[in-house]
Nucleic acid binder design. Sequence first.
DNA 1: TATGAATGAGACTTCATTCAT
DNA 2: TATGAATGAAGTCTCATTCAT
Lengths: 227, 227, 227, 227
Amino acid sequence: MQKRVDPATPPAGQTPDLSTETGRELAADAAGAGKTPRTERGRKTMRAILDAAALEFGERGFHDASISGITRRAGVALGSFYTYFDSKDAVFRALVRDMSDQVRDHVAPGIRAAPDQLAAEHAGLRDFIAFVRGHKELYRIIDESEFVDPESFRLHYSTTADRIAARLKAAAARGEVRDDVSEIHAWALMGINVFLGLRYGVWEQDRSPADVADVIADMLATGIGPR
Amino acid sequence: MQKRVDPATPPAGQTPDLSTETGRELAADAAGAGKTPRTERGRKTMRAILDAAALEFGERGFHDASISGITRRAGVALGSFYTYFDSKDAVFRALVRDMSDQVRDHVAPGIRAAPDQLAAEHAGLRDFIAFVRGHKELYRIIDESEFVDPESFRLHYSTTADRIAARLKAAAARGEVRDDVSEIHAWALMGINVFLGLRYGVWEQDRSPADVADVIADMLATGIGPR
Amino acid sequence: MQKRVDPATPPAGQTPDLSTETGRELAADAAGAGKTPRTERGRKTMRAILDAAALEFGERGFHDASISGITRRAGVALGSFYTYFDSKDAVFRALVRDMSDQVRDHVAPGIRAAPDQLAAEHAGLRDFIAFVRGHKELYRIIDESEFVDPESFRLHYSTTADRIAARLKAAAARGEVRDDVSEIHAWALMGINVFLGLRYGVWEQDRSPADVADVIADMLATGIGPR
Amino acid sequence: MQKRVDPATPPAGQTPDLSTETGRELAADAAGAGKTPRTERGRKTMRAILDAAALEFGERGFHDASISGITRRAGVALGSFYTYFDSKDAVFRALVRDMSDQVRDHVAPGIRAAPDQLAAEHAGLRDFIAFVRGHKELYRIIDESEFVDPESFRLHYSTTADRIAARLKAAAARGEVRDDVSEIHAWALMGINVFLGLRYGVWEQDRSPADVADVIADMLATGIGPR
DNA sequence: TATGAATGAGACTTCATTCAT
DNA sequence: TATGAATGAAGTCTCATTCAT
C-alpha cells in the first residue's frame, strides 16, 4: 500500500469551487460518472449511495463489495442503484474522483497559506496525515483503482506528481529550493507523503501529524547526512 | 498503488531469472503454502504452476485471474492445481512470499557491499529499479495482497521498514548519518524507493536507475533547500 | 431405511395434494429456512421451487439431485433458487420440515376422532399407509435427512416418539391400555408404523391399509401368543 | 433412521460357515465385490481397507466419504485401493454385505438356543441391541444403502422379513404362536427391532438390552390392552 | 423514481479413477 | 503390489444487470 491522494494543492484559483451545494454532491457530479439527478430527493439518494459505496468499498474491497451491499447500507432498493450509476465500475470511478477531490481540497489551504516551500510541504504532510485519520477507507479505495480502473489510478498519481513538480519549480524560481529540483524529487515527495500517511494515519497513530511533518521538513531542509 | 518490496538490490545485471528452478524452489517451499511434492516430477509441476501464477496474476490481477488460466499457462490439467495448492488464495500467498524473498535476496548484496550508508541507499535504489524492470508483475502482486491477504501485505511493509530502520541506526552509530534517524526516516525512504520504482521501473524508463539514484542520494545528503 | 414421519393420519381419502398452494405455504414459511418473499409473485416462485425440490430429491436422492434439476422442474432460472434459499442444504431442511408437518397434520384428525386408544392406533396406521401411497418421496427425503441434517432427523423421530408416548400415557390413565406403557412401547409402535408404511405403502400395495391396520390392532390387543 | 440389519437368524445349518479364516475376511470375500488377494500381504491390506471403509463411511456417510480418506485411515497409498476394489460403490456393497453377515452371525446362536418362539424373539432383540452398541456405524451404513445401492437395501430387508416370517410360521406349526401369523407380523417385528436398536443401542443406553427385550416379549405375549 | 424478483454466465473446488513408475 | 501424480467432469454458489410493476 502506498497509493496516496494528494498532500499538495494546485496554485490558488485552480481549485474548483465546490461550495455551491454541499460541496460533496457537486464533486460526485463533476466526476460525470453518475447520472445527474433532477430532483432534490434524487440528489439525496445519490449522495446516500455514494457514501454507502465509500463504506462498502473501504471495508470489503472492490470485488467483495456488492451492489446489494451498497444499497442495503444506503437504505434504498437494489434497482435504485441503476437510477444513478451505470455500473459497479462507474460508482467506483465516481468515488475515486470524489475522494481525490476531497483530499486535495482539505489540504490545499494549508499549503497556500505557507510562507515558503518547506513550510508548505510541512503543512501538506501534516494536514494529509490528519485527513486520512478520519478517512481510513481512502487508501483502500484509491489503491484498488490500480486494478479496477488503471487509467484513473495512473492519472491520479501523474497529476499529483505534476502538481508537486510545478510547485517545486515555482519555489526554485523564487529561490526557496535548489534550482535543479525535478520530477524525480516530486515523485520522491509523493512517496514520502503516501507512506507516512499509511503508517501514521491509517495503521497507527503513535506520533502526531505535526511531529512527523517536523521530521520530514527537517530532512528535506538538510538531508540525513551527519551534522 | 505502488507497494514495494525491498529497497535493496542485487548487483546490477544479476536480475534473477524467474523461470529457472535454481534457488526458487526453496523460496516457494519456505512459503509453506503449498503441499510439498514428494517426487521430482511433482516438484517440476509445482514450479510450473507457481511461475504461471506469477504471469496470470501479474497480467490480470487477482480477481480476473483464474485457476484455469494458470493451469493453461502451466500446461497441466485444471485439477492438478489442487494437488499443490489448497485454493486460489493459497497460491497467491505463496507467490507474495516467493517474490518478497526474491527482491530482498537480490538487493541485499549491493547494500552490503557499499562503503557507507549513503552509498548503500544509492545502490539499493538503483538495483531495485533495475530489478523491477525485469519483474513488472511485482507491483501488481504485492499491491494486491492488501486486498487478498492483508496480513502478509502489512507484514511485508513492516518488515521492510524495520530493516531500513535498523540499517540507519547502525549507520548513525558509525557516524555515517545524523544520529536522530528514526522510524519516520525509514518509512520515508521506503516510500521514495517504492514510488521511484513504480515511476522509473514499471511505468517508463526514461531515466537510468543510476541517474535516479544519484538524484535521491544527493537529496538525502544535503536536502532540497537552496544551496 | 424406513424412516417415518407420523403414525397418525388424516381422514381416509383426504390425502393432501402436494402441488396446490393452500395450506402449504405456511408450513414452508414456518420452516424459516427460506427467505420470505415480499411479493405474491415471489411467493409462487418459492412454492414452485419447493415442490420441484420434493420431486427432485425424492427421485434422485440428495446428492444426485442438483439445483439445476430443481430449477428446471420449477421452470425458473438457476439463480432464482438462491433468491429463496441459501443453499442446497437449506431447501432440504425446509422440505423435511414441510413434509414432517404435512404428515402430522393429515394424520392427527383420525387419531383424535377414535373412540379409544386401540382404535386410534388402528386409524393412525391405516391413514398413514394411505398417506404415504400418495407421497412416495416422503421416505427417501426423511430417511436421507439422517445424512444431510442429522439434527432434524433425530428431532423428527424423538418428537414423534414423544407424541406417541404421551398418547399412551393418557390412554393408560383412562384405563384403555395397560398402565405400564412406556417409551419403549412408543418406539416399538413407531417402528411398526414406519416399516409397514414402507412395505405396504411404498413398496407394494398388495394389502389394503385397513387390512394391515386390522392385523396390527389385533396384535396390540392380545399379543401373538397362542390363543 | 430405522434401517436395520437383522435381529434374527436362519435355521441352523443355513448360516454360511465363515470360520475358516478370520471369518471377517471370508465374509468380505464372499461378497464377491472385492478382487481376491493372492498373497497373505494382500489379504491384510484388503482387510485394512475394508475396516477403514467402515469407519469412513460410518463417520461421514457415503458421499462425504472419500477414497483418499479410506486409504489414509488404512495407511496405504491411494492407488492401492483399486488393487482390491473396482469402485467406491464396490467397497460399499462389500461392506454392507460384510456387516449384514456379521449381525446375523452374532445374533443367530441366541435365537437357536431359545426354548420357544417368544424366548427366541427376546434373545434376538436383546443380542441385537447389544451388538449395535459396539457397531454404531452399522445403521448409517445399512441405511445409506437405500440411496447408494437400492437393490441390496431392498434385498436386505426382504430377506430379513422372510426369515422372520418363516420362523413365525414354524413356531405356529409347533403351537408356540397363534396360527394366523403372517408377513405383516414379520414386518412389524422387524420394525420394532430396528427402532429399538436405534434408540437403545445407538442413541442412548439408558436401558439394558435385556430390559428392553423383556418389555417387548411381554407385549408380544399379551398385547398392550388393559390387563 | 422506486422496488425487488429474475436472469445466467462464470469460477472455484472436489474427487473418483487412471496410469506411469 | 504399491505409489502418488494427473486428469477433467460436474456441481454449487455469486452477483452484476435487467425489467416488469
